[in-house]
């Protein structure tokens, strides 16, 4: 009987499921990211003067800036688990397309960031008393688009940074400039949603998010094999 190596999507799912199983067992990255995000919200809340800046103006920027920084914590761990006992060698020696490793990691990271968003966005509504119930669905869409962009870029840079001595420093240095268009677009879209503005006003920002996801999603997938080549 002959075995047949899995195709791109099956292999990606195997890698993603393995990463999620490891995170489910350890829970360290998820909880540290969540705590970081909630602490960030708390600090901004206490530093905020509601008499000078309205909550509706402040909350979108706070939310997406916190996601950008807290996401880095989770992304750092993404390839860290492969480094501990050189498990990455076993992945690269297996009959997988290199792209499958990237896509699997990205899917796991997306679910990871989504989990953090699920807790943090309601917490934001609580802290800043902003009415999110009416815009829950469009906001979920913005959160998904922003998370895809963060994860696409962050996963690639995580694979590059993990082999360096300054991984903790290098990942934010490489990622944050690329996160900027995501944070700005997501904040602007959220601000317009919160203000009840017509959807047409948010569309230009949404287009940037969509374009970013498309361009960097494809580019990072194609570039990943070169980052793991020796």
């Amino acid at each position: 009987m002959q075995s047949t190596p899995p195709g791109l999507f099956r292999a990606s799912w195997l890698v993603a499921r393995k990463d999620l199983a490891i995170e489910f067992r350890t829970r360290t990255a998820f909880f540290s990211t969540l705590v970081f995000a909630l602490l960030g919200l708390t600090i901004f809340f206490f530093a905020w003067d509601p008499t000078t800046v309205a909550a509706i103006d402040l909350a979108p920027g706070v939310l997406w800036a916190i996601f950008a920084f807290s996401g880095l914590l989770g992304l750092q761990r993404s390839f860290g688990v492969e480094q501990a006992d050189r498990a990455m060698d076993a992945l690269l020696a297996a009959p997988l397309d290199r792209e499958a490793v990237y896509l699997g990691k990205a899917v796991a990271n997306l679910l990871f960031v989504g989990g953090v968003q699920l807790v943090t966005i309601p917490a934001l509504a609580l802290f800043y008393n902003v009415p999110l119930a009416g815009i829950a669905l469009p906001l979920a869409g913005v959160a998904l688009l922003a998370a895809i962009g963060l994860v696409a870029v962050g996963t690639l840079f995580s694979s590059m940074a993990v082999n360096t001595r300054l991984a903790e420093l290098l990942l934010p240095m490489l990622s944050l400039p690329f996160f900027l268009p995501i944070v700005v677009s997501a904040s602007m879209t959220t601000a317009r949603l919160l203000a009840g503005r017509p959807a047409a006003e948010a569309w230009p920002w949404l287009r940037i998010l969509l374009a970013f996801d498309l361009v960097f999603g494809v580019a990072c997938t194609l570039l990943f094999p070169f980052t793991v080549e020796e």
């Binding site: 075995s3 047949t4 190596p5 899995p6 292999a11 195997l14 393995k18 199983a21 490891i22 067992r25 350890t26 688990v81 501990a84 006992d85 050189r86 498990a87 060698d89 076993a90 992945l91 020696a93 297996a94 009959p95 997988l96």
Partner: peptide
């Protein structure tokens, strides 16, 4: 491939590690 390093995931069980490899090899 067998190397100096175990190339295993510490958080997963022995069975899960080997089964994961079996799935990767189809």
């Amino acid at each position: 491939l067998v190397s100096h390093a175990s190339m295993l995931y510490g958080a997963l069980s022995a069975r899960e590690n080997v089964e994961f490899a079996a799935k990767l090899y189809g």
